[in-house]
Design a binder for these strands. Structure first.
Lengths: 307, 307
DNA sequence: ATGAAAGCGCTAACAG
DNA sequence: CTGTTAGCGCTTTCAT
């Protein structure tokens, strides 16, 4: 009989109505993912990581990009709360907006934060030590012998930008080198602005021998700026990026960069969120998870000229 | 009274239950987007286009990437039908799978196809003439004087790949030039495979003076291969890509490429789907929409050596 | 084992 | 204008 029903269902191409199931189960099986328009490769890694964990689960992924969270966190909050989600994955910089977290918590919407920088004890967090990552790449440049080093910061509203800079500072101070603040420029993670900042740095009478860019897009822009000025990389200028994105490999020379396991972190965040939603929270799943960065030394960094 | 209720609702942070609304409205306000893992920039453009149209609508976007549709179309079909969607946006190559379309139609799931290549009369279609685009770029190379021209095809399961090649053929035949089939290599739209194919082409005793790559990632790979062999671009070798992706601009030399208005097409597809779902289908919305490509001549193409 | 009924939270149709 | 009710499609509980 049970079988007969099943057969009839199959014959009629019957599929249960998800809305009715959701109504009774009190959940939508929808997980949201918010992020802010950074580079395409970052976004895709993030999505694929989360999707990888969701595969073979009933959950579906709703993408909710949102720009300028910093200037209007409550708007994003409303959007998320109205979206009928079971839970939400928060990438930077949304994961660092206390007001947003307040709103979400008030509505008891479970959430996981991907590489937050502040309030590390709120919600589920998948962490990454940006300071240590910044330290590593700066230490690499210093160990090559560079002393006059330029910096291209990312968008200041991203905590990652501040964290990485903090790491640079630590490495400089350990090496007994003073940071020349006039060689620190502010970009916004995009190629075009990165190019402008790089030009400014390279046009200075006493040009830096190395540039630390806070992501690969801006690092590639710095290489382009150098090329346009006839400055060869890495002979006359070393350039290091951040992210190990696709362009870091297709650029020439290939970029020295820091690999951030974005995909794995997104997978983890989804994993923890699901554990919470399904109540399968083992002790392991409830712990904060830390991921480590990896310095990839490629062809864009070398000893400074004359050394 | 009406006001009092509203106030109370606001005070309690009340939000209507979407599942219940869906149940009664007989729709989920969920739109799916399927695509196959091509380059990150393409995926992001596609998503942003669709999301742009969905903004300020009740609809939410569920992303459903799926690899190797060609080998298992019924699996994707099941996935889509179980996802509780109101409609679905089909990017290549899924939009060209007749079996998939059959399944979707049988369940009466509305769908819009983004740049399909076959059965242009099925479903809502947002078209793009790949043949004409291929023709344009090949004609550009031929007009520069090139005669020994290599080709790096994309994934053969993508109809776009075949369409573009057809365009190359037309341009060659109009110019009275025979295609040297031994200079036609098959890639898969990825940088790495593109590099291998480019190496094979450039290692031939009689090296081509130009390479037509079917996307930018492979074109950049061809430039890398040339550089590794000491062949300078564009002096000794011209390279043209396809897509006007981010890398085409950050590459050096900047790539001559074909701009495909992916974002606009995705916007349009979402627009038409919504028109169908909401029954606001004006005459304009029901028409097939055609988008045109644009050749962007940049620094990677020039006259062949000795001309 | 099978069948009947209640109810998830909402909207729409109707009655007062 | 306010209030009541039926029912969307399903699952769960309870009765047979």
């Amino acid at each position: 009989m049970r079988r007969k029903v099943k057969e009839a269902a199959a014959a009629l191409d019957y599929h249960p109505n998800l809305a009715a199931q959701s109504l009774i189960a009190r959940r939508s099986f929808l997980i949201g993912l918010t992020y802010e328009r950074p580079s395409p490769s970052y976004v895709v890694e993030l999505q694929n990581g989360a999707l990888g964990r969701l595969e073979n689960e009933r959950y579906r992924l709703v993408v909710l990009p949102f720009n300028h969270v910093a200037s209007r966190p409550e708007e994003l909050g409303k959007l998320l709360l109205r979206a009928g989600l079971d839970g939400v994955l928060l990438a930077p910089p949304a994961c660092d907006q206390p007001l947003l977290l307040d709103m979400i918590e008030r509505q008891k919407l479970p959430y996981a934060r991907i590489t937050p920088h502040s309030d590390l004890d709120r919600g589920l967090v998948v962490a990454m030590d940006e300071v240590a990552a910044g330290h590593t790449v700066a230490a690499h440049i210093l160990s090559l012998g560079h002393r006059r080093i330029g910096v291209i910061l990312g968008d200041p509203s991203h905590a990652a930008s501040r964290g990485r800079m903090e790491g640079y500072r630590q490495a400089f101070s350990e090496a007994g080198v003073r940071i020349d603040e006039s060689l620190v420029g502010t970009g916004d993670f995009t190629h075009d602005v990165g190019y402008q900042v790089a030009r400014t740095l390279l046009d200075r009478p006493l040009r830096p021998t190395a540039i630390l860019a806070q992501n690969d897009d801006m690092a590639v822009a710095a290489i382009a700026a150098a090329r346009d000025l006839g400055v060869s990389v890495p002979d006359q200028l070393s350039v290091a990026g951040f992210d190990n994105s696709e362009v870091s490999r297709t650029a020439w020379p290939q970029l020295t960069t820091v690999h951030q396991p974005v995909r794995e972190m997104a997978w983890d965040a989804a994993d923890r969120l699901i554990a919470e939603l399904d109540g399968t929270g083992s002790a392991a799943a409830l712990q904060r998870r830390d991921h480590v960065h990896e310095l990839l030394v490629r062809a864009s960094t070398a000893a400074p000229p004359g050394l």
